[in-house]
Amino acid sequence: MTSAPAASRRIRLPDWAAWLGVAPFFVFAAMFLIAPTAWLLVGAFQDGDGAFTLANFVRLGQPSIRLSYALSLEISAASAALGALFGLALALAALRGGLPEWVRPTLMTFSGVASNFAGVPLAFAFMATLGRLGLVTVLLRTLGVDLYAHGFNVLTFWGLTITYLYFQIPLMVLVVTPAIDGLRREWKEAAETLGASAFQYWRMIALPVLWPSALGAALLLFANAFGAIATAYALTGSSFNIAPILLYAQIRGDVLHDPNLGYAVAVGMLAITGLTNLAYLALRSRTERLR
């Protein structure tokens, strides 16, 4: 009759059953996050014979490693800043620029594909177009423009930064789109009835509401670029000194082989990526309060 007996008849799962439900998550985290991190951490504090040492971290201070970190950070920062800027502009234009209906889905699909178009295929595409014998390079040379004579080189800071932009911009588009969609029509119309110009609306409302999301997205791009090894390695081989390649060389390389130093390099990268992600999360919680 009443609902009380029905409620008590409802099957009550024991606590362990609830834990069983989330077990796959913990297994996943343990296998792909915790175990490798622990492995790295332990390895980073050991010497070649397995004894405890801080030497690996001390060696992170040596000029070649310091330089590779600096270069990685610079490329990541540059590609994140430029990617965020262009990505934001592109997304704003597509979503709020009064463009035809088909622009949005097309841009989204393209961005979904392009943001994953990193690694060897992207590197190959770059070499094939802008490399020393690339299509565009050769074409421009026949037109009398010699890119390389003007100091251009894919295997440089700018070369790598521009290459990274090819996946950073689409990634930015994907990450900020929800934030732009979150700009309510009422805000714009309320501002208008109150006498604001379109410029005033953007300056005083839309951009202040957007910037935490945009900055958060830029941090994500930074972490993304900082960890990207495949593109850099495929593009430059081991000839270009950035942190992921250095890491690769230490663990795999024939000449520099020193896994423990490699672990220390990785721990350093992990710390930087981790901090970036923390900042991203902090910004995101701030954004959520703005809704």
Binding site: E192, G195, S197, I205, P208
Partner: peptide, 20 residues
């Protein structure tokens, strides 16, 4: 244009500027 009409408008909900 709307911003020249000197009109006050109240919407159904969520129209306050969230950053202010």
């Amino acid at each position: 244009r709307a911003n020249r009409r000197a009109i006050g408008m109240v919407f159904q909900a969520y129209a306050l500027f969230p950053n202010m």
